[in-house]
Nucleic acid binder design. Structure first.
Length: 480
RNA sequence: CGAGGUGUAGCGCAGUUUGGUAGCGCGUUUGGUUCGGGACCAAAAGGUCGCAGGUUCAAAUCCUGUCACCUCGACCA
């Protein structure tokens, strides 16, 4: 927490330029998104933060439904024997599993894992539900929380328990599974860019970075304003890696038994962290309108004067009737200036000030959170203007973030260039495909490979690390 | 889990070196004046000093242990 300084306009938030991590922590707390709890690494998400999550859920869920998925609910507890069935999977997750060992007063015969992810329980059920090619595909999703006993935690970015969705699908053919994997990656990309206004690089993970148990993992990678990468969503093609140990088999049209092909994909409350660190500024949170619980705040000015409160209320009602999420801030114990700062801290995209002079002239004063631009608007037809302004804020936030991302991405051809570039952004490089080179880069620069973009147009001929012939284009960055 | 840091009123902090009645600012409550970018005056309430042991006539302060959070690493959505 920054020391209070009466001279400074922003008193509470540690300057972003001074200490990005502390700035993030301050914003998360001061914007009232969450609070710490007595449970190690587990946060309480407060109404304003949960409101953001609800808007994310609502819009993503609609996309899942549109692409033919249905929601289900699986148990939170997974018997140890199920978790052990896929070797890579258990090896990847075992270190961070929390265990239930006792039921009531009796020790359990077999301990139960608090799910760190639900592949194993889904697969177990799928083995019962899939018999024939007619049963396929199965395209299910669940919204739930999972638990991973992380060593160090940070609000929204890495918590021991977190909210997410996990889609798990079963298909008859490898082609269909790959199509599904790519389709859902596309859903995530479109959602991040179109709804969260967070530009992302999409591509395939290296073997070192892929999901435990996956044949192939694809991800959407965002860039935070300190130049670090945040993996924001993943989509996995399992092939038959899980269907074989779990015996998910079906009788195909040709009369033979075949193993099914599976996928899984997920995004979490980490997306909220991505939004904060992509868009926030010195005054606090900056929310894209599509996920802002409050899109417009109406602040009466000189509210004690005749007719002001009523006039401002009418403006708020008018906007609300147009389907805009509006807060009418008629608190009488804080001044308008205080409210301006508070709503900016909380990232409300548009503020509408209504004072006596405005009402006389049949207008209001609008202020955009993204540009601080002030503009008088006529009350007549205001809702149309505000809706257009919200669209403008949404697209401007994306364009600004994209320009930042592009300006902090560069091609590199030597290790020196790479080391320099990952200090404040993404390095695009050629890579030979050997994990030894990834390890070397990790050791020297604390940077990891993020993904191999689908556009594989070469930018060189040799590996940035070992100098041997290289055919893969890949991004490296320091990551959260 | 390794290194470092911080736990004192709702929030932010001082006090700890050198043990001796618990302090400040903001916020809160009440009344009044204010109101176009974090208003002002007056009065009031609010704390077993993270927790547990120990040393001492006496511990926020010294010792031991422990927990939580923050930062940086290693590991991960």
């Amino acid at each position: 927490m920054a020391k209070k300084n009466q001279q400074e306009f922003v008193q509470h938030i540690t300057p972003r330029s001074e200490d990005f991590s502390q700035w993030y922590t301050d914003v998360v707390k001061l914007a009232d998104l969450m609070d710490y709890t007595p449970v190690r690494g587990c946060m309480a998400i407060k109404p304003y933060g949960y409101g953001i999550w609800e808007l994310i859920q609502k819009q993503l869920d609609a996309e899942f439904k549109r692409t033919g998925h249905q929601n289900v609910s699986m148990p939170m507890l997974i018997p140890e024997s199920l978790l052990l069935k896929e070797a890579d999977h258990v090896e990847g997750f075992a270190p961070e599993v929390a265990w239930v060992t006792q039921g009531g007063t009796e020790p359990l015969a077999e301990r139960l894992a608090v799910r760190p992810t639900s592949e194993t329980i889904f697969c177990t059920m799928y083995a019962k539900w899939v018999q024939s090619w007619r049963d396929l595909p199965l395209k299910y999703n669940q919204w739930c929380s999972v638990m991973r006993w992380e060593k160090t935690t940070r609000p929204f970015l890495r918590t021991a328990e977190f909210l997410w969705q996990e889609g798990h699908t079963v298909h008859a053919t490898a082609e269909e599974a790959q199509e599904e994997t790519m389709q859902m990656l596309g859903v995530y990309r479109d959602f991040c860019e179109g709804v969260l206004a967070v530009p992302v690089y999409c591509g395939q993970k290296s073997d070192k970075e892929k999901f435990a148990g996956a044949r192939a993992t694809y991800s959407v990678e965002a860039m935070m304003q300190d130049g670090k990468a945040l993996q924001s969503g993943t989509s996995h093609n399992f092939g038959t890696n899980f269907s074989e140990p779990f015996e998910i088999k079906f009788l195909d049209k040709d009369g033979t038994q075949k193993y099914a092909h599976e996928t899984s994909w997920g995004v979490s409350t980490r997306l909220i962290g991505a939004v904060i660190m992509t868009h926030g500024d010195e005054r606090g949170l900056k929310l894209p309108p599509k996920i802002a619980p409050i899109q417009v705040v109406v602040v009466p000015v000189a509210a004690h004067k005749e007719g002001v409160l009523e006039g401002a209320k009418a403006v708020a009602d008018k906007l609300e009737a147009a389907g805009i999420r509006v807060r009418f801030d008629d608190r009488d114990n804080v001044t308008p200036g205080w409210k301006f700062n508070e709503w900016e801290l909380k990232g409300v995209p548009v503020r509408v000030e209504v004072g006596p002079r405005d009402l006389e002239q049949g207008q209001v004063m609008s202020v955009r959170r993204d540009t601080y631009e002030k503009a008088p608007l006529a009350i007549e037809g205001l809702e149309t203007e505000i809706l257009a302004m919200l669209d403008a804020v949404q697209s401007n936030m994306f364009e600004t973030a994209k320009a930042f991302r592009d300006a902090h991405t560069a091609d590199v051809h030597t290790m020196d260039e790479l080391g320099e570039q990952v200090n404040g952004g993404y390095a695009k490089a050629m890579w030979c495909g050997e994990q030894a080179c990834e390890d070397e880069i990790k050791n020297r620069f604390a940077a990891s490979s993020r993904c191999m973009p689908f556009d594989q147009t070469p930018i060189g001929e040799t590996c940035v690390c070992c100098g041997k012939p290289a055919h893969k284009v890949i991004y490296f960055a320091k990551a959260y």
